[in-house]
Amino acid sequence: MYSPEASALAEEIGLKKGKANLEVFAATVEALASSDPQVVAVVSDSRGSGKLGPFGAAYPKQLVEVGIAEQNLVGVAAGLASAGKKVFAVSPSCFLTARSLEQIKNDVAYSDNPVTLVGISSGVSYGALGTTHHSLHDFAALRAINNLHVVCPADNYEAEQAVRAAAVLEKPVFLRFGKAALYSLGSEAEQAFEFGKARLLRYGDDLAFIATGETVAHALLAAEKLKREQGLEARVISLHSLKPFDVDAVLAAARECGAVVTVEEHMVNGGLGEACAAAILEAGVGDCLFHRVGIPDEYTVTGSQADIFRHYGISMEGLFSTAGQMLERV
């Protein structure tokens, strides 16, 4: 996932490799279930990929299996939630947010059934399994549905906090997790996690990386490289909540830095970048340089997640040169 240079830099600045967010999710749900018999996970032959094997073994009555039937998964989850269960509906994001989109829209969001939809192995986590297994549309599709939080944690801290926050929110939430082991990105003490509140990971005023999910670490490393090699101070924001959206953090970045690079493991259409662009334009910050990094509107290149990231410049090196070109330094 990281080049030797990026890995070395990560070590130098003290980033520690944690677990996959998927594992943190499973452990957190298990912890919640230990004190709350109302916690239920619904799976569609996805307990293995959702790392919920131990949960199922510990709380067999709190795991509902529907078989390979994602539409039924979301419908059943909505029904369980309406009867007071704290429901996590867990399935690969590619299927959960496409096949079951109507159930998400009608049965969960508009009927206001407080289901936590958990899209696992999201983005291009499945790598060489190919386009059927990628979810490059989920932000775009779900951003267009009212009454649904859309959240994409960047590290283990955000993942655990997001699961816990979703469990007590009593509102429909979509959580998006990948399966790569992730660096821990910041001091957890400094900022409490809150839906709709971006996490400032690094202060700077030459340009801002506004990133989400598994791309954030690459932005953080690019910021360090920019500092060392160009003397540039780059701000790095983990914008974990696509909805609700932290307009203030985005506008502050645009106004104070004058240059914004958005980074997402999603097609550039309809995702984080467009959300930021709309906020910036609408507020009249007209002179802000702006560039979206993500998967372009083309047949996605084949390969592992790391191959795909590298190909589209979602890497320390790629973001370093994007930023440099933007500021005409390279």
């Binding site: 790598g127 060489a128 399994l129 190919g130 059927t132 084949t302 390969g303 191959d307 190909h311």
Partner: peptide, 13 residues
Amino acid sequence: LCCYQSHYVGHPT
């Protein structure tokens, strides 16, 4: 099979 830029990936296309 399953390599970068190969058409031979983990599902039929």
